[in-house]
């Protein structure tokens, strides 16, 4: 149907741009088409304008530091020397912690909600998970600062440092605020997103797949792990990417618990900053073209990192899907 429509329009005589835009040849459709086209152009225009504005604002810093901005660990407003590496590292490290904790946890929740939970529990539990996504990040940040951080400082970091202190990750003084706290607050924020998407893709697996596996003499767990999860995997990966996207860009809650350090270190207990939290913390008091330029360039880098991660994620989904249809050819 759609194919036929496209073909018909491709053959419609008229100016090249009419064909190019698949412009309706002779009907009242053009009002609707114009409106939707304008909306689409607005979006593209906004994106381009934003990128250009960021680039223009960042220009003093871009010309001054060049590519070294990405590899420098300095951030000294007094001497006017700026580098992005600790912030990039902070963003990637906290997001990695978040994914390491959130992915297995949300997979467990999603499998439980979709496959195992009794009927009476399913709806309220799903609702609670969705509510978690609706909590404003500043509220989560307050909770993180006043409840989670003290708990991380005392039992968690004390214990890890005391018992597993030979691992570089768990060395250093237990500040409470730092990489670990940032990563864990991001876990709380990405968990409901990943769970919801994974649960929906598990629910979308046709029953015939479950029955096929059960009829072979599979246990419940074998049915889930060998028939349901493989079938749902591209949706699950998409959910993880969505969660990762949120973790990379999240600002408020992370800023409140990450401790405002600026270093590249393996020590998880150390105070840190992400690109987003660095910008949020310093934008108000920044003065001078270079200082502001450095912060805006940080935003550009964040923009680029998010873009790259999303592209990798899309490719991952594409590969797993195409892998199943062309394997061995």
């Amino acid at each position: 149907m759609r194919q036929a429509l496209i073909k018909e329009q491709a053959q419609t005589p008229g100016k090249w741009w009419r064909r190019w835009l698949r412009w309706p040849a002779s009907s009242g459709d053009w009002v609707f088409q114009t409106l939707t086209l304008l909306a689409a152009l607005c979006l593209v225009g906004l994106l381009v304008a934003m990128a250009l504005y960021l680039l223009a604002e960042a220009w003093p810093s871009v010309t001054l530091f060049g590519p070294a901005f990405l590899t420098s660990t300095a951030w000294d407003p007094v001497r006017g020397v700026f580098g992005a590496l600790p912030a990039v590292y902070g963003t990637l490290a906290t997001s990695a912690i978040a994914m390491i904790v959130a992915v297995p946890l949300s997979m467990g929740v999603a499998i439980f909600l979709a496959e195992l939970a009794p009927d009476w529990l399913r709806a309220p539990a799903s609702f609670l998970v969705e509510m978690l996504a609706a909590i404003p990040s500043v509220v989560l940040g307050l909770w993180g600062l006043f409840v989670m951080v003290p708990l991380i400082r005392d039992p968690v970091e004390q214990w890890l440092g005391g018992n597993l202190g030979f691992i570089p990750l768990f060395q250093g003084p237990p500040f409470g605020v730092g990489f670990l706290a940032g990563g864990l607050i991001l876990t709380v924020m990405s968990l409901p997103l990943i769970t919801a998407v994974a649960r929906d893709s598990i629910l979308a697996v046709p029953n015939s797949q479950r029955e096929a596996m059960l009829a072979l003499g599979a246990t419940h767990w074998e049915t889930i792990s060998r028939a349901v999860l493989p079938y749902a995997r591209s949706g699950i990966i998409a959910g993880v990417i969505l969660g990762l996207g949120r973790a990379l860009g999240e600002t408020m809650a992370v800023t409140m618990v990450i401790g405002n350090g600026y270093q590249v270190t393996l020590q998880l207990f150390a105070p840190a900053n992400t690109m987003a939290s660095k910008i949020a913390t310093e934008f108000n008091e920044a003065s001078g073209d270079v200082y502001i330029g450095a912060l805006v360039e940080l935003a550009l880098v964040l923009f680029a990192v998010t873009l790259v991660v999303n592209i990798i994620g899309r490719l991952l989904v594409y590969w797993t899907v195409s892998d199943t249809s062309t394997r061995g050819q």
Partner: peptide, 24 residues
Amino acid sequence: VFQRPNPFPTMSIFDNVAAGLKLG
């Protein structure tokens, strides 16, 4: 055997046939 063919779409032909054998 079910009414509609329901092979496992993420598995090769070989793995589809071997799926039951690999259980347990």
